[in-house]
Structures are given as C-alpha cells and as structure tokens.
C-alpha cells in the first residue's frame, strides 16, 4: 500500500501516480477538499481517500475501486465508465452524472440532480436524494433507500428508479411502475454490491411513460383528406 500525501504533493503529482499505476492499493491523505482527485483512472487499482474531497472525485473512472472516507462535492464519479466509487458520507449535487457504467455508492445523502443524464451506471444512495434527480436519465438504475426530492426522473428515458421512502413529486413523463420479480432480483444484487441492508420488496419503481419520446403532430390536412 502506497500513501500519497496531498499536504506535501500537488494534485498533478498524486493523480499522475494513480493514473499510471496498473495495479495496487493507494491511500491519499490530507485531501482537504481537493477537486478532480482520482479522476481518469483506468486500471484495477484500489484507492482510499482519507477525508473530504471536492468536485469530480473519481471522474470518468474505469476499472478502479475508489473509496472516499468522508464527504464528496459536486459531480462525484461523473461519467464513470466502470469500477466502483463509494463515499461514506454525503455527496453534493450531480453525483454519478452521465455515468455510462460501474457502480456509485453514497452511504449518506446525495444532493440535487443525483444521476442526472445517467447512461448505464447504477447508483445506490443510503439516504435521500435531492430535487431533479435522474433528470433525463437514459439507462442504468438509481436506488434510493431514503426519500427522493421534487421532480424525480423528469424527462426520463430508459433508466430505472427505485425509491424505498417517499417521493416529493415525479417530473415530466416519469410514472410509477409495477415491481416485477426481475426487479427484486436486480435490487438484491445491487444492494449486496453496495453493502446496503434493505429489503427489495420495500422499494417502489419509477420509469418513463414514454409519452415525450416523439413529437405528435396533429395532421389536420391528412384527416380531412381521409374523409
């Protein structure tokens, strides 16, 4: 295990070590809210950050297993491709934004726009998520053990949303859907992956009504011609 001290090394130096490593375990000490820490990793390394991080920690992650022992700022694991990014505390807005794959785990609460524009990532939040979460969410799953704020899943595409608690309101074209056995199986797997203790049967499922997928012109002339 190699310790990288952000109190004495620059962000570029620390990220360079992490980005060029092909394997191994790393610890970053004294993060002091640094932005863009551990972004662009592309190897099966393990990174543990001892303290809070700023924006975009674990951004565009590939393969790596990142653990933040503390809170995270805006854009945690944004555009994650694969691997896992976990925070033990709370996450700021836009956690897991546009993620294409992998797993993001927030053990505390996640702020607004959690999972915005997600494209295949799975996100598990132990607490609540803020307003406009899963906005324009395209693929993947957002699993919330607590409550969801206003306008959940606004303009959602094919992402799946699971909420154990309440939802303040659903956004445009987002509706509640039946929870089928395959969804219970999926939840059981992802909750286990996230090391969360919850009963899949307690979750409600939300997704797209698919009413905004296409424009619906009212072709008056065609109707008249057909008469």
């Amino acid at each position: 295990m190699k310790v990288l001290d952000l109190g004495t090394s620059s962000l570029r130096e620390v990220n360079s070590v992490l980005q060029t490593a092909t394997t191994g375990e790393f610890v970053v000490s004294n993060p002091q809210g640094a932005h863009a820490l551990g972004c662009g990793l592309d190897a099966p390394v393990t990174l543990r950050v001892e303290g809070p991080v700023g924006y975009y920690c674990g951004g565009m992650n590939q393969q790596a297993n990142v653990l933040v022992d503390g809170n995270a700022g805006t854009g945690l694991a944004e555009n994650i491709m694969s691997g896992t990014v976990t925070v033990t505390g709370n996450a700021g807005q836009s956690a897991g934004a546009t993620g294409h794959g992998g797993l993001v785990v927030v053990q505390g609460n996640a702020s607004a726009r959690c999972g915005i524009s997600m494209k295949g990532v799975d996100i598990v939040v132990g607490g609540d998520v803020g307003h406009m979460s899963a906005f324009m969410a395209q693929a993947g799953a957002l699993i919330v053990l607590g409550d969801a704020g206003a306008d959940l899943g606004d303009s959602i595409y094919e992402a799946q949303l699971f909420v154990r608690g309440s939802t303040t309101s659903l956004g445009a074209d987002c509706v509640e859907k039946e929870v089928r056995p395959e969804h219970l199986d999926f939840l059981a797997v992802r909750l286990a992956d996230a090391e969360m203790d919850a009963n899949p049967a307690d979750f409600s499922r939300y997704g797209s009504a698919r009413m905004l997928y296409n424009f619906h012109p009212d072709d008056v002339n065609a109707v008249e011609a057909a008469r």
Partner: peptide, 14 residues
Amino acid sequence: DLEIKIQELREITG
C-alpha cells in the same frame, strides 16, 4: 464551476 471542470479535463488528459 467551469474552471473546476476544465481542471478535471486537464487532469484526465495530463
């Protein structure tokens, strides 16, 4: 925010 975003893009691309 954009300043931090640009920093991230630079960090990812060295």
